[in-house]
């Protein structure tokens, strides 16, 4: 992630995408954005797609599989594999909204990004702008996503966004977000309670 939390920094480039999600590749040596953080992809024509890092995938290959069997791997070999070898870290990104002509919408982007489009980690300003727009409708993308660890993805995202909002003066944002989550999941007790337990940890971490 960027050293300066206010600035959007390029973290990778697009490998593949569909209307709901995309996968970006970045070097293992890079400080890639953490799980749950907000990223944006410029689609051109004043449109940017927003998404959350929903999975970070590190592929193996034959060599790595062979190397892990050795008792002592020297640091230089580790660095070689991380820095030099052509095995990118894959970031799965779940789209949660877009910005079109300056207006943020919590709907899917009108089209997916294209190969090698730049993926940027959103700075705190962008995180606040996106999460404050509308009425948190984008949380549905997280809660409705199949085959994703929704509770942890939500917790990771709310930690990032809650911290940004708190630092920008809105201490109530986190409570509003939880309220929204409860609204969305209250008919599903079995799903809601683990989600809330995950969010309880976030609340403690945020200290609000």
């Amino acid at each position: 992630m960027a050293n300066d939390p206010q600035v959007n920094v390029q973290v990778g480039r697009l490998l593949r995408a569909n209307t709901r999600a995309c996968v970006a590749g970045c070097l293992p040596s890079q400080n890639f954005p953490p799980f749950g953080s907000l990223v944006s992809i410029d689609l051109g024509q004043e449109i940017s797609a927003y998404g959350l890092v929903s999975d970070i995938h590190i592929d193996d290959d034959g060599l790595v599989r062979q190397l892990v069997t050795t008792p002592n791997i020297s640091e230089t070999v580790i660095q070689d594999n991380r820095v030099n070898r052509n095995v990118p870290v894959e970031l799965s990104v779940l789209f949660v909204g877009h910005r079109s002509a300056g207006v943020i919408s919590h709907r899917l982007p009108p089209r997916p990004p294209l190969s090698l489009d730049r993926v940027r980690a959103c700075g705190e300003g962008d995180v606040c702008a996106f999460t404050s727009a509308g009425s948190l409708g984008y949380l549905r993308f997280i809660l409705e996503a199949q085959d994703l660890p929704a509770a942890d993805l939500l917790a990771a995202h709310l930690l990032q966004a809650g911290r940004a909002q708190r630092d920008h003066g809105d201490e109530q944002w986190f409570a509003r977000a939880i309220d929204k989550v409860i609204t969305q999941l209250r008919d599903d007790y079995v799903r809601l309670m683990p989600v809330l337990e995950a969010l309880a940890d976030v609340q403690r971490e945020l200290g609000i």
Binding site: A175, I178, L192, L196, E197, A200, Q203
Partner: peptide, 15 residues
Amino acid sequence: ARLPEELAGLLDRQT
């Protein structure tokens, strides 16, 4: 019993 006071309050208010 499972959640901190504030979260429990938010949950109870809706359920």
